[in-house]
Design a protein around this nucleic acid. Structure first.
Length: 115
DNA sequence: ACTGTGACACTGG
DNA sequence: ACCAGTGCCACAG
C-alpha cells in the first residue's frame, strides 16, 4: 500500500462537499479539509478548488493553525466575514481550539461510523 | 505524456 | 515569534 487508494470522486467534488459541510460559525484548515476529502497530502489542491468552485464558504477555510493564508484584501475580507459568523480571532489567527470543525468520516452516502 | 502550478504544511535558522 | 526554504500531490494546458 503505497498510500490510500484515491477516492473515486475527483478532488474538486470531494473537497467541495466537505467544505459545504462546515457549519456556520465554524472553520477548518486546508490540510483538514483535504484529509476529510480523502487527500491527506493535498492541502494545496483545496485552494485550487476554492478558486474553481464558487458558492463555497471559502472563508471558513484557513491555513494551519487557523492562520489566514490569503494575501491581499481578500484576507481582510475573510476575517471580516468570519467575525460576522461569530468566529473570534486571536490576533492574526482564529481560535482553532474552539472553532475548528471536526469532519465526520467518509462523506460518502452512508456514514460508516465504525473505525 | 510532460511540465507547471498552487488561498499549504512543516522544519530549521 | 517571524521569515525562508523544501516537500507534497492532483489537476490543467
Amino acid at each position: 500500500m503505497k498510500r490510500p487508494p484515491t477516492p473515486k470522486l475527483p478532488i474538486a467534488a470531494a473537497v467541495a462537499a466537505v467544505i459545504r459541510k462546515i457549519p456556520r460559525g465554524r472553520v477548518s484548515t486546508y490540510g483538514a479539509v483535504a484529509e476529510a476529502a480523502g487527500y491527506p497530502r493535498c492541502a494545496r489542491h483545496v485552494s485550487k478548488v476554492l478558486n474553481h468552485v464558487p458558492g463555497l464558504p471559502w472563508q471558513r477555510v484557513l491555513g494551519a493553525g487557523g492562520r489566514i493564508s490569503l494575501p491581499g484584501e481578500f484576507g481582510f475580507e475573510q476575517r471580516f466575514l468570519l467575525e460576522s459568523e461569530g468566529v473570534r480571532f486571536k490576533g492574526l489567527r482564529v481560535d482553532m481550539a474552539s472553532y475548528e470543525h471536526h469532519f465526520t468520516r467518509t462523506p460518502r452516502k452512508v456514514s460508516s461510523r465504525k473505525k
